[in-house]
């Protein structure tokens, strides 16, 4: 009986560790940014909300064009994308296939600024950026 208890306990510990490592698969830079977004009032970051926003289409005011993150990056972050204007190949964003991604705070913030303005027509809120990061880091 004791053996079984021990076995189950070990199993649970391992499962817990695995779960923990999945839930915390945030990069160091990503973590620092999440902290910063949290101190700006954002909370309960959600990968699901990030994914929904990633795929949401926005209408560009000037051109009437439909734009979303997927326009350039596609809906599969493990695959390369293509710049909508210049056609230049964009390397995959998913840290699981491209270790250089989400590793530099300044770079993440720079592209959030540029690409939120291009896609949503405005800056993203700390909440939205946190949700995006949670989604991207798990890819």
């Amino acid at each position: 009986m004791n053996e079984i208890k021990k076995f189950v306990a070990t199993g649970l510990t391992i499962a817990g560790m695995c779960y923990g490592s999945i839930a915390l698969s945030q990069t160091k830079a990503g973590e620092a940014l999440l902290d910063r977004y949290a101190s700006a009032g954002a909370k309960n970051f959600s990968a699901a909300r990030g994914e929904a926003l990633w795929n949401q289409k926005f209408t560009h005011a000037k051109s009437g064009q439909k734009r979303s993150c997927t326009t350039c990056h596609t809906s599969d972050l493990r695959k390369p994308g293509k710049h909508a204007r210049t056609g230049k190949i964009i390397e995959p964003l998913a840290p699981s296939v491209n270790a250089t991604r989400l590793s530099n705070e300044k770079k993440i913030e720079k592209w959030f600024l540029r690409n939120c303005k291009w896609t949503l027509g405005r800056k993203c809120t700390p909440q939205e950026k946190g949700d995006f990061l949670s989604y991207m880091s798990n890819q």
């Binding site: 204007r85 720079k110 600024l113 540029r114 690409n115 303005k117």
Partner: peptide, 12 residues
Amino acid sequence: LDDHFGENAELP
């Protein structure tokens, strides 16, 4: 750079 041939290319 905020309107770089129609794209946002702002830099710090």
